[in-house]
Write a protein that binds this DNA or RNA. Structure first.
Length: 258
DNA sequence: ATGGCCGAGATCCTCGGA
């Protein structure tokens, strides 16, 4: 089974790119973030025409997450944490793979910049609430996949020039520690597990010719609970969608489960 | 060295993103 995650930066502006990705890459399930629209304006039919059912947690203009899936997703949960700013940032659900129930958590974590503002405080609080909730979930569900835009650069190797990001909400030590804290509950950063020293990115800013210069960062991740790691066959970053006309600034990351 | 974009939504600019 192929599960992908992609911050699409507006689902309505990206319908053609998303459909083309579904046709070319054929994921069984795609987690998308930053859909920037309410459920009532979600382009359900465009994906339905290609055999995908959508499960949406939207918001007007900002944020919003969804599953686009060929496999059935049960127990959809749009109240995973109590978001202090009432923003639509997490949709969870359960799928069956072989005989295992797997809990999927699709996240769009707050950016947090600039750091001397409420936005950064919100990001830290959001992570604290999320970590607390995941700890609770682990008591009942042993097979968990957390995918999405974590807005964290885990290590120096994960950004084109780490010296520029020491005081950035994506790379501050304090925020990278939240990522470690989450992983230490019992998860693997799957990309890094399979690629010990590889330098690849999932995001390139629209500005400053970042894509052309490969000034990117790895901020979109798949974490899987320890129980699942031996079921993971591979993980890849597909750079093609970032090179298309009218691209998102992020590109998909794809997880293959046996 | 520096700065360079894009989407939504209500106008002809602001906010947010990373």
């Amino acid at each position: 089974m192929k599960i992908s995650s992609w911050n699409v930066n507006s689902v309505r502006a990206r319908v053609n790119n998303i459909v083309s990705y579904l046709k070319n890459s054929n994921p069984d399930l795609l987690m998308i973030q930053e859909i920037k629209t309410e459920e009532k304006n979600f382009p359900y039919d465009d994906f339905k025409n290609h055999g995908y059912k959508s499960y949406v947690f939207g918001q007007k203009s900002y944020n919003g997450v969804a599953f686009i899936s060929k496999v059935n997703i049960d127990k959809i949960d749009i109240n995973f944490i109590k978001d202090i700013n009432k923003q639509s940032r997490i949709i969870a659900g359960t799928i069956k793979n072989k005989s295992k129930d797997i809990k999927l958590v699709n996240v769009y974590v707050p950016n947090g910049n600039p750091i001397e503002t409420e936005k950064y405080e919100y990001k830290k609080k959001w992570y604290d609430l999320f970590i607390k909730k995941i700890k609770k979930v682990l008591a009942n569900d042993i097979n968990i996949i957390i995918g999405g835009d974590f807005n964290i650069i885990p290590e120096k190797i994960d950004v084109y020039d780490h010296t520029k990001y020491e005081n950035d909400a994506l790379f501050k030590l304090e925020i990278r520690k939240k990522f470690r804290e989450l992983i230490n509950l019992g998860f693997y950063d799957v990309y890094r597990y399979f690629n010990k020293n590889k330098c690849e990115y999932t995001f390139w800013d629209y500005m400053a010719g970042s894509w052309q210069k490969d000034h990117g960062m790895r901020i979109d991740h798949f974490l899987v609970s320890n129980n699942l790691i031996n079921d993971i066959k591979n993980i890849t970053i597909d750079k093609k969608p970032r090179s298309k006309i009218k691209p998102s600034d992020h590109t998909p990351i794809e997880l293959i489960i046996n």
